[in-house]
Design a protein around this nucleic acid. Structure first.
Length: 501
DNA sequence: GTAGGAATAT
DNA sequence: TATATTCCTA
C-alpha cells in the first residue's frame, strides 16, 4: 500500500480570523500561537490578512494542471496504456495499482533501477528519451484526482507532482517500501514512477502552489531564517508530503524573492514620490479637521508602502504607533492571502486587530551575538531590502522609539531587525531627542558595517536622510544607546560575521 | 558530485 | 504569469 496519510494534512487546515485562532495545519511543532504568530511575521506587503482561510481541508495537495482533452488524445495513441489505466476497468485497492500496472511493461521501467525513486536528480539529471506512456498514466490519474477526490488517486497525483521527493528520506522510504510491496508489477517506488513519467522530455506536471503549500513554504523559510532558507533545507522542513523537489522549492523561492524585491522597489519609488510631495508641501499635514485623520510624515526613512515600517510611519501623534509585520515575505501569487485593501494604504496599521498586543520582547532586541550574527548573514544574503523595520505595539516607556522585529520563536530563527541609532534632526518636531532614532540593521556592527548601513540609508530612497544632514557618528550612536540603557556592544559582537574585527 | 541560484524555456 | 528546466558556479 502506498502511504496515504502523509499526503494529506493530518488535520485539515482551519483558519479563522476570530478572537481565537484555530490554526492547525498539521505542521509539526506549530502551536496555535506560534503558527498564528508566524503568519503575522509575514509581511503581507499588501497583506493584512493571514495567508488564507482554509476550511475545506481538501485542497491541501498541490493541484495538478492537466488538460483532460490532451490526455484523451494521448491515450488514443496508446491503447495498451489506456486499457490498463482505466480506473473503472481495474479498480485497484489503492487507486495506484492500476497506474503502476500500466507502466510495468514499458521499456522505461525496465531501464530504470528500482532505486531511482530514492533520489532522482532533477533537471539535467533526468533520464531522457524514455517512453511517455507512464507520464500519461499519471496525468490521467491526476485528472481523476480532481474529479473523484479519491484518496488513492490523491496519492498518485501527489506522486506525479514530483520526481525526487526522496530528499527527506524517511517518508519516501516508507513510500518506496509500500510501493514495492503492493504490486508485483511495481518494484519501483511511486516517486520513481513519477520520475519516469516526467523523464520523457515532457515537462513535469506543475506544482500548484496553493495557499496552504505556500504557507508551509513560508513557515519553513521563517523557521530557517532568511540566511539559511535554501531549497534543500526548506524542503526538509516542509517534509515530502507534497512531493516537492528541490527545484520546485528553488523555483518558488526565486520567484518569491524576485517579487519581494520588485515590490520593494516599487514601494521605494512610491515612497520617494510621497516624500517629495511632502517636502513640496512644506511639512506635516493636519487633516483631522478635514476628516481624513491626522498623519505625520515619518521622521526617518521607511520602507515602501505595505511594509511594516511604512505602515508604522503613519500613526496618530501621541498614540502608540501601529505594530508592523517584520518580515516581508511574500504573499501567495494568487493573492488569496493578500490583505484587504488599505485605504489609504499606507496609513493603516497592520498589526491585526484580533491579536493581542505583541509581548515585551518587541521592545528589546536579544543580545545574543549568535542572533545578531544570523541577522547579519540574512542581510548579507538578501540585502538590506530583506530587512524591514518594525515598531512595537505600544510606545515603549523609554523615551526611545525602537522598532524591532518579532521575537525569536522557540526553535526558530529570528528575523532581521533594525536597531536604533540616533537620527539627525528631522523636519518633524521631536519631543524627545531620541524619538527620532533611526533603526539600522545589525545591532553590533563593525564600523564598516555601520558605514555601509549608513551608506545604504543615504542611497535607499526609502531610507532617506534629511537633506543636508549628516549621519550620526558611531560614537554618538553608542553613547546614545548607552544612555538609553542598552547594553554596550559585546566584544565578540563587535566583529562582523566574517570574523573580521 | 551536489546544491544554490540566475537565466531561460514552456 | 507561474512553473519547470537549464546552466553556471561554488
Amino acid at each position: 500500500m502506498l502511504e496515504v496519510a502523509t499526503l494529506q494534512s493530518p488535520n485539515p487546515a482551519v483558519f479563522s480570523l476570530g478572537e481565537h485562532h484555530h490554526v492547525d495545519v498539521g505542521f509539526p511543532e506549530a502551536t496555535v500561537e506560534e503558527d498564528d504568530f508566524l503568519l503575522d511575521y509575514i509581511d503581507f506587503s499588501t497583506c493584512d490578512m493571514p495567508f488564507f482561510h482554509v476550511d475545506d481541508g481538501d485542497d491541501i495537495l498541490p493541484d495538478l494542471e492537466v488538460d483532460p482533452t490532451e490526455l484523451l488524445a494521448e491515450f488514443a495513441d496508446e491503447p495498451a496504456t489506456t486499457t490498463v489505466l482505466s480506473p473503472a476497468a481495474e479498480p485497484a485497492p489503492d487507486g495506484c495499482e492500476t497506474h503502476h500496472g500500466g507502466e510495468a511493461k514499458t521499456a522505461a521501467e525496465t531501464e530504470l533501477p528500482a532505486e531511482m525513486g530514492m533520489e532522482l536528480p532533477e533537471g539535467k539529471g533526468e533520464t531522457k528519451g524514455l517512453l511517455s506512456s507512464e507520464e500519461k498514466d499519471v496525468r490521467q490519474h491526476n485528472d481523476n484526482n480532481k474529479n473523484n477526490n479519491n484518496v488513492g488517486d490523491e496519492v498518485c497525483s501527489a506522486v506525479t507532482t514530483d520526481d525526487s521527493s526522496a530528499v527527506v528520506g524517511s517518508e519516501n522510504s516508507k513510500s518506496s517500501a509500500s510501493a514495492e510491496g503492493h504490486s508485483k508489477m511495481t518494484s519501483k517506488p511511486a516517486s520513481a514512477a513519477a520520475a519516469t513519467k516526467s523523464s520523457h522530455g515532457r515537462r513535469k506536471v506543475k506544482v500548484d502552489w496553493t495557499p496552504e503549500l505556500h504557507r508551509r513554504f513560508v513557515q519553513a523559510v521563517e523557521q530557517l531564517g532568511l540566511d539559511k532558507a535554501v531549497p534543500s533545507r526548506i524542503l526538509e522542513l516542509m517534509g515530502n508530503e507534497y512531493r516537492l523537489t528541490r527545484h520546485n522549492i528553488a523555483s518558488h523561492l526565486q520567484r518569491s524573492h524576485r517579487k519581494h524585491l520588485m515590490a520593494r522597489e516599487a514601494g521605494a519609488a512610491s515612497w520617494t514620490q510621497k516624500r517629495q510631495m511632502y517636502a513640496a508641501a512644506g511639512g506635516p499635514r493636519k487633516e483631522a479637521a478635514a476628516g481624513g485623520g491626522p498623519w505625520v510624515v515619518p521622521t526617518v526613512g521607511f520602507p515602501p508602502p505595505g511594509t511594516m515600517a511604512h505602515a508604522g510611519m503613519a500613526h496618530h501623534p501621541g498614540q502608540p504607533p501601529p505594530f508592523c509585520r517584520p518580515l516581508h515575505v511574500w504573499c501567495h501569487p494568487t493573492g488569496v492571502d493578500a490583505p484587504l485593501p488599505l485605504s489609504p494604504p499606507s496609513m493603516l496599521p497592520v498589526w491585526p486587530r484580533h491579536l493581542a498586543p505583541p509581548p515585551a520582547w518587541a521592545h528589546q532586541p536579544p543580545m545574543d551575538p549568535v542572533y545578531w550574527h544570523q541577522q547579519y548573514n540574512a542581510a548579507r544574503k538578501w540585502g538590506p531590502q530583506a530587512v524591514t523595520q518594525c515598531v512595537p505595539p505600544t510606545m515603549p516607556p523609554a523615551p526611545m522609539m525602537q522598532r524591532f522585529a518579532a521575537p525569536p520563536m522557540p526553535g526558530m530563527m529570528p528575523h532581521p531587525m533594525y536597531r536604533p541609532i540616533p537620527l539627525p534632526p528631522s523636519p518633524v518636531p521631536q519631543s524627545n531627542k531620541v524619538a527620532g532614532l533611526q533603526l539600522q540593521l545589525d545591532a553590533h556592527p563593525s564600523k564598516e558595517s555601520i558605514d555601509a548601513a549608513i551608506g545604504d540609508v543615504l542611497v535607499k530612497p526609502w531610507l532617506p536622510l534629511p537633506l543636508g544632514l549628516k549621519p550620526p557618528s558611531l560614537d554618538s550612536v553608542m553613547s546614545e544607546l548607552h544612555k538609553q540603557g542598552i547594553p554596550k556592544v559585546p566584544p565578540a559582537a563587535t566583529t562582523n560575521c566574517d570574523g573580521a574585527a
